[in-house]
Design a protein around this nucleic acid. Sequence first.
DNA 1: TTGTATGCGTTATCAC
DNA 2: GTGATAACGCATACAA
Lengths: 345, 345
Amino acid sequence: MERATISDVAQLAGVSQATVSRALRGVAKVSPETRLRVEQAANNLNFTLSKSASALASGKTMRVLLLVSGTLDRWFNSSVLQGAYDVLSPEGYDIIPSFVTNRAQLDHYFAELPKNRNADAIIVSSFTFTTELHDRMAAMGMPVIGLDSPSTDGFDASIAISNADGLKQSVHLLHSLGHRRLAFIRDYVPQDMVYSTTTRADCFASAIDALDAGLEYTILTAHTHVNTVEPEELAPELASLVLSSPLRPTGLVVETDELAVPLMKELRHQHMRFPEDMSIVGFDDAPISRVVDLTTIHQNPIELGHSAARKALSLMRGETLERSHEVQPTTLVLRDTTGRAPNVA
Amino acid sequence: MERATISDVAQLAGVSQATVSRALRGVAKVSPETRLRVEQAANNLNFTLSKSASALASGKTMRVLLLVSGTLDRWFNSSVLQGAYDVLSPEGYDIIPSFVTNRAQLDHYFAELPKNRNADAIIVSSFTFTTELHDRMAAMGMPVIGLDSPSTDGFDASIAISNADGLKQSVHLLHSLGHRRLAFIRDYVPQDMVYSTTTRADCFASAIDALDAGLEYTILTAHTHVNTVEPEELAPELASLVLSSPLRPTGLVVETDELAVPLMKELRHQHMRFPEDMSIVGFDDAPISRVVDLTTIHQNPIELGHSAARKALSLMRGETLERSHEVQPTTLVLRDTTGRAPNVA
DNA sequence: TTGTATGCGTTATCAC
DNA sequence: GTGATAACGCATACAA
């Protein structure tokens, strides 16, 4: 009843350890008959190769780390995981997910885990890095793939979306609908920020400046960080920020759908109608936005996961990527929460 | 620049490999001074233990498998993952998630992966098992923890929720609100069913029978399986099933919130008002249900993950659980989609 | 195509 | 409390 080892299989098949190893992995030259015999023997003994032993002997762990910012049960993160799984799993790789929510945890993660050959590559999602961290990653001795990172610095490869494009699309939409006073809504930005979504506010401002159409805008920030509470708990505060803003914005752009939805709900409680009184644009095209017919900027985190995983695969095989750093386009999804600006003073 | 091994550290610290191993793991007797010296040496060399080597030598892989039914980016599954992570990660365990969506994949999974000592335990979520699979699991040589499984058979431990209680609560609620004709809505149930949610229809029927209050009911099933399409694509079909049912139900109980939300939206397009014309109860209390104020049955998959992980931990340590198989209660969450039955013929 | 021999980096069992 | 040393189960030159 003890689990069998490779030599048990070898013995039963009447061949050497080495041949069993070759046959089972389908590499090198093994005659069809031998292969068959080995496979049958392995089957009889209920045998599969030990990952630990293989890893030790070969130097490849067949594991890739996935580090995300924020908990694993968030839509974006779990979708990235699913995407990475889609391409890595068929190739025999295990994915080891983990997450951090602040700079301290991030530092600790990089200080502890990856000094060693405990994985063949790491995919790092949605972080803003310091140059110090870049150096540390570069010294890690394994490919580091960035996903949705503001910079490509320190990454061997990366896949990102263009927050700038997305925000530009939002701004242009609202502008063309006649809105002249816009607001960007976001949650609290920690000093030790690690989230790349925080760059969206800057993109929003840049888009308006670049448009140069005389639009006024303001950036409204909640006091509480959304990761410490549920998004809907921020809604009252955000709503009051919007309604009490001296600018009286008619066009709202929100950092994420997750934030936009409860905000919109709260504003409706305050008798604001969308899009008659106000227009609102989210970001992400998360499933929730379809439910409430929210106009938003589409991105596909599963695809990001695919892309990052493919880059990881190539890098692990020692190939050189023709395009190390790529950017996925974002698209504007028009639904029911945007319309012509109201005729107000 | 080559990564250091334990002997490099030993040399630098002026001790033996064995002592380094003991010191770094904080086990057995090592004098404080020695420990300090070793730790400094390890730090200087940027050294951490190799998981592969440790696993091979010790026989413990420090890995636990998490097998879920359905993709990893679904709310329930990613929450379970997060929960398991919360308790396993601090203990030094890696979690290796994977998923299957049908019986064939499930069989393949069990045929391939776990014959071997590639993990110390496995958590299996939301499956309906055949006795054959039970036997296979029992023979796997590692603790098997069930999560949300209809039966405790074949599991060394398990944590579940009471679907029966939840459905009973739904039925009683609708009954006490005066509803006399109920319908249970679900998506297509594959022949080779692996999802435990499919048992909910049975619970619904049993609850009505047990109530014995003369309620009439019907069970409405979509033709397409929700895993092959987006939930909202099923909405039109489900809505027409509801509205064309000869029973003319006024109280709807839906298998999951994920299904209830688009159904309700579609029914509203058909001029049904909730709860004036109809009442609807979901199941899960997924975040989406809060957004649309759906009355539903609450469960907490993160807690399930915690519980399963704790059981796994104990089992891996060779402890005997005082309560191997536990059931978490479900609670009814009243929101805005349920009300008194309409006064119709 | 197949077999032999060595090493991968730890842990654990002994001694001391 | 610490140091040798033999496993652990496999991959891979190198031979044959």
